[in-house]
Design a protein around this nucleic acid. Structure first.
Length: 367
DNA sequence: GATAGACTCTGAACCACATGCATTG
DNA sequence: CACAATGCATGTGGTTCAGAGTCTA
C-alpha cells in the first residue's frame, strides 16, 4: 500500500528555494562550504580566499548538497549518485524502505582550489570520456558511441574519473576503467537473484524487480568500513553513527534482490577509486565538470526516477491478483458470492459467474 | 498581466485475508 | 534444544478521490 509512493515528496519542496548565496560576494550561489571558516562560497570567491596564502589553502572544503543547495554535502549516496546534506539525506532516505537501503558514505573534503578542480575535470571530460546514447543517458550508464561533446560533459558522472585517468601513464588505465565498469553497464540482476535467492522459500519466493540500475560511479572514496558516521559540517571525520553498522544494501540477503534499484554495495566497491587520496593532491570527490550541469542532471534524474514497487512476497502478490474486488478494494468472499448469485439471474452473466465460482479464489475482475 | 475555470497529474487511502514471524507451551 | 500451536502484523493490487500543478480563455 503506497509503500514506495511519495518517496520524492519530502524533498521536492527544497527545489523551489533558491540556492544559497555566497557568503563572500553575495552575488553568486554558493558552490562549496569551507569548514574552518564555516562559510558558504562560490567558486570564484573560494579561489580568491583559499589561494591567498598557504594556511587558507589547507582549509577543508566540501561541495554543496546537490538537492537543496542550502547546506554542505554530508554524505554521498551511491544509489542516487549524489552528494546530499544531512537534511536531504534524511528526507530522501527515510521516505520509503527502498530508499533506506541506499548505501551512503561520508563526503570527503577537498583542499585544492575548486576552480582548478572544475577546470581539470572539465578538460578531462572532454579528453576521452564519451557520452552515451539517449537511452543510456537516462540511466547514467556510459556508452562509447556518441559524439556530442556537450552531452559528454553533461553525462560525466564523476569528473574525478576522467581527470584521474588522464593522469594515468598509459591507455591501459583507461581500458581498466571501462573494463571495470562493464559489470555496471550490463548489470544483471538475475545473476544476483540466482545467487542470493537460495534462502527463499519455495512458495514465497521473492520477485525481482526489473528496474534499470541507475548507476553513476561513486563520487568519492568508498570506505567499506565507514558506513556509519555522524554528520558535522565543520568536521572532516565522520564518526559513528546514524546508520546501521552494516548498510542494508549489503546485509540483506534474499530480500535484497527484489529492490533492484540499489546496486549492491560490494559490487560498487569493486570499482571504487581512491581519487580523494591521490598522492598528487588531486582533489577529492566532486572535482569535475560544470557543477551546474551536474545539479541539473541530478534534478532531471530525480524527476524521472520511478521507484519500482518492491514485491517481497510473490505468493501474496499472486493471491492479491486473484482476489475479488469491488471498485478496486478487496471484497469479502461472501459478499462476492452473494453478488454473483444475484447476477446469475442475468443469463448473459451466468457463464462468467460460473467460471468465477469454479476457480479456487473466485476471480472477479471488476464491477 | 491577473484571474478563474478546466484539465492533468500524482500520491494516499481503502479494502480482505493468506502469509510470515514471533511468542508460548 | 526442537517442535507444534497460536496470534498478530504485514503485504498485496485496482480503483477512487483529493490536492497540486498546468494550461487556456
Amino acid at each position: 500500500m503506497g509503500m514506495e509512493r511519495g518517496g520524492l515528496k519530502g524533498f521536492r519542496s527544497g527545489w523551489s528555494v533558491p540556492p544559497k548565496p555566497c557568503d563572500s560576494c553575495k552575488l553568486a550561489s554558493a558552490a562549496l562550504f569551507c569548514r574552518p571558516d564555516a562559510a558558504f562560497l562560490c567558486i570564484a570567491c573560494d579561489s580568491k580566499i583559499h589561494c591567498a596564502n598557504k594556511l587558507a589553502s589547507r582549509h577543508e572544503r566540501v561541495w554543496m548538497c546537490e538537492v537543496c543547495e542550502q547546506a554542505p554535502a554530508a554524505v554521498t549516496c551511491k544509489a542516487d549518485a549524489a552528494a546530499l546534506c544531512v537534511t536531504c539525506d534524511s528526507d530522501i532516505h527515510s521516505a520509503n524502505p527502498l530508499a533506506r537501503r541506499h548505501d551512503r558514505l561520508p563526503v570527503e573534503p577537498f583542499f585544492d582550489s575548486a576552480e582548478a578542480i572544475v577546470k581539470a575535470s572539465t578538460a578531462a571530460s572532454f579528453g576521452f570520456l564519451v557520452p552515451t546514447d539517449a537511452a543510456a543517458a537516462s540511466s547514467d550508464v556510459f556508452a562509447p558511441d556518441h559524439a556530442d561533446a556537450d552531452a559528454a560533459a553533461w553525462l560525466i558522472p564523476n569528473p574525478n574519473f576522467g581527470s584521474k585517468l588522464l593522469d594515468a601513464p598509459d591507455i591501459k588505465s583507461k581500458e581498466i576503467f571501462f573494463s571495470e565498469m562493464e559489470p555496471f553497464l550490463d548489470f544483471d540482476y538475475s545473476n544476483s537473484f540466482q545467487n542470493n535467492n537460495s534462502s527463499s522459500t519455495a512458495n514465497d519466493s521473492v520477485v525481482p524487480v526489473q528496474s534499470k540500475p541507475c548507476f553513476t560511479p561513486p563520487l568519492m572514496n568508498n570506505h567499506q568500513s565507514e558506513n556509519c558516521f555522524d554528520i558535522d559540517f565543520c568536521r572532516s571525520k565522520l564518526s559513528s553513527f546514524n546508520y546501521p553498522s552494516q548498510s542494508l544494501s549489503q546485509s540483506v540477503s534474499s530480500s535484497s534482490v527484489d529492490v533492484g534499484v540499489v546496486p549492491d554495495g560490494n559490487t560498487v566497491s569493486e570499482i571504487s577509486y581512491s581519487f580523494g587520496r591521490d598522492s598528487s593532491g588531486m582533489a577529492t570527490q566532486l572535482c569535475g565538470m560544470d557543477r551546474e550541469a551536474r545539479v541539473l542532471r541530478y534534478r532531471e534524474k530525480r524527476k524521472n526516477r520511478k521507484f519500482e514497487k518492491t514485491i517481497r512476497y510473490a505468493s501474496r502478490k499472486a493471491y492479491a491478483e486473484t482476489r475479488p474486488r469491488i471498485k478496486g478494494r478487496f471484497a469479502k468472499r461472501a459478499e462476492i458470492d452473494s453478488d454473483v448469485v444475484d447476477r446469475l439471474y442475468s443469463p448473459a452473466a451466468a457463464a462468467a459467474a460460473a467460471l468465477m465460482l469454479d476457480t479456487p479464489y473466485g476471480v472477479v475482475p471488476s464491477f
